[in-house]
Amino acid sequence: MAPARPLRADARRSREQILVAAEVAFARDGIEASLEAIAKDAGVGSATLHRHFRSRRQLVEAVFAERTEAVIAEATELATTNPPGPALFYWLRSVLRVIVDNRGLAVALLPVPDGAATDSSCHARLTEAADRLLESARETGDIRADITTSDVLSLVNAIALLAEQPGPVDLDAERLLGLTITGIGPAACADHSSLAGATEEQSAE
């Protein structure tokens, strides 16, 4: 496959203007911000926006690409400076903070619909980083053997999406993450087994 041709200066400038306008719009209006309004704020036509970004998701991923790459790089750093269990927890906390601080990023980290996945998507790249941390944590017994990468990323995403919702009380996202981490630990697995056994005994009575 031939490498992509570099953009002309005017095309590169248009792309950068679109990304700046999109970041502002996503922060203000969420992921469903009007693409036509983004194009207008960027000073380009809708056709130009769609020429650079074929889908809303592609635009979202481009807006948050730098922050996603920073989180992925942090996974490698944490794995070399911490035991597997803490490395996983610290990294998931970093992922949560980045998602909460960047409205709309949660959508970019969701699985890509069947047939549209690419190895370079935010979800694919983040999953690869998480896989390595989870594998190490499983080997040392720091997390339950049945926990998957999809499990932990879905939980972090769910907490972040809850934190985005307006409500009378601010949701403490990091506290919820701490409770989640407790739930995926090996002790929680043992507790779950005991609870299941007790429930079966009660049903038999």
Rank of each mutant, 00 (worst) to 15 (best):
A108F: 05
E174M: 12
T182A: 11
I99R: 01
A73H: 13
T118L: 10
Q58R: 15
L134H: 00
F53M: 03
D119F: 03
A9G: 07
L105N: 02
A37C: 05
V100L: 14
G30W: 12
A124C: 03
A2K: 07
T199I: 10
N82F: 13
A65M: 05
P3R: 08
A190Q: 14
D172A: 10
G183I: 04
V100D: 03
R5I: 06
E36V: 13
R5M: 08
L153D: 00
A190K: 11
A87W: 02
T199N: 07
A145H: 08
H123K: 03
D114C: 06
R8D: 14
T127L: 09
G185E: 04
P83Y: 04
D191M: 12
A198E: 10
L161W: 09
L88E: 03
A130E: 12
I99K: 05
R175I: 13
M1T: 15
R54E: 10
D101H: 15
D146G: 02
T80S: 14
F53T: 04
D131K: 14
L105V: 12
W91Y: 06
D151V: 02
R8F: 05
T149N: 00
I18M: 05
A158V: 08
A27V: 12
G141M: 02
I181C: 12
P186M: 05
C189Y: 13
A173K: 09
I38M: 00
S120W: 08
D172H: 11
L126R: 07
T68N: 00
D172S: 09
A2Y: 08
G141D: 10
E174D: 14
H52L: 00
E139V: 13
D146A: 13
P166L: 06
A21Y: 05
V107A: 11
A4P: 08
P166S: 01
E77M: 06
R144K: 11
D29I: 10
S55N: 08
D142S: 14
P168C: 02
V20F: 10
A158W: 07
A47H: 09
P111K: 02
